[in-house]
Computed example of a mutant assay.
Amino acid sequence: MSGEKYATASLIIPLAIGLKNVCNILLKKSFCKEVQHVIECYLRSIQERFGSLEQSTTLMVCTFIDPRFKMLAFSDKQISENAKQKVIALVASKVNHNVDTTPHSPMVTTDADELCVWNYTDVTVARNTPRIGTATSRAIVEVNCYLEEAFLPRNEDPLQWWKAHQFNYPHLSMVVREIFCALGSVTVSFFRHIINMHLRKEYGAKLMK
C-alpha cells in the first residue's frame, strides 16, 4: 500500500489528530518542567505544521474513502460533511462521464407486436422503468450506501476491501483508483527532529552555564 518510509494520504489526518490528542493527555500528567516544556513545544509544532491538513482536498477525500475511517477521522462534523460533499461531487462527475446520453424513443406497438407472447411483459416493464435521476442524486445514493457499510478494522487492508466492493460502488471505486494511493511523504521524521532540536537546546544551555 505504501513504501516503508511513507504513509498513505488517508492516514495523515487521523495520525495528526491522534498525536495532538496524545500531547494534550501528556500535558495533564505530572512531569518535570523540562519534560513539560518539550511536550508543549512538540504540541505547538504539530499545530503549526499540521493545523491546515483538513483543508487539503486530497487528504480529506482519501480519508473519507478509506473504509477504516469514513467520516469519523475528522476533528469536527463540519469538516467531515465538507469531505462528504467533495466526494459526492467527484462521484457525480464520474456518473456524468459514464451516463448513457442516447435518447430513448418511446415504445411503439404494431399490430404484429400485439400478437407477440412477450408484448404484455415488454410494455409493462417499459411503463414501470424508473427514471435514472441526476448525476448528483445517483452520487448521493452511492456515497450514502458506502457510509452504511460496516467499518473495516484498522489493521486490515482497505485496498482489499475496495477490490471486493468495487462492483457495489462503480463510480466511487473510480475515484478510489485515481486518488486513494496518494502518499503523504516525509523523508525525515519530523517529530524526532523536533524532540532532538529541543534536547540539544536544553543541553547546550546547560553546557554554556
Rank of each mutant, 00 (worst) to 15 (best):
M1Y: 14
S10D: 13
P14V: 12
P14A: 06
L15R: 13
C32R: 12
I46M: 10
E48I: 14
R49P: 02
Q55H: 12
Q55E: 15
Q55N: 14
S56P: 01
R68F: 07
R68L: 10
K70G: 06
L72K: 12
S75W: 01
D76W: 06
Q78L: 14
S80N: 03
S80R: 03
E81G: 06
A83S: 11
A83P: 10
K86Q: 10
A92M: 04
S93A: 07
V95W: 05
N96Q: 05
H97G: 10
N98V: 01
T102K: 07
T110I: 04
L115F: 09
C116G: 00
V117L: 08
V123G: 05
A126G: 07
R127G: 15
R127W: 12
T129R: 15
T129F: 12
I132V: 13
I132M: 11
A135I: 02
L147R: 03
L147G: 07
E148M: 07
A150R: 15
F151A: 05
L152R: 11
L152M: 12
L152H: 10
R154Y: 11
D157Y: 09
L159E: 11
A164T: 06
Q166R: 04
H171P: 03
S173K: 00
E178N: 13
S185D: 11
F190T: 04
H198V: 11
R200G: 05
E202G: 09
Y203V: 10
L207I: 02
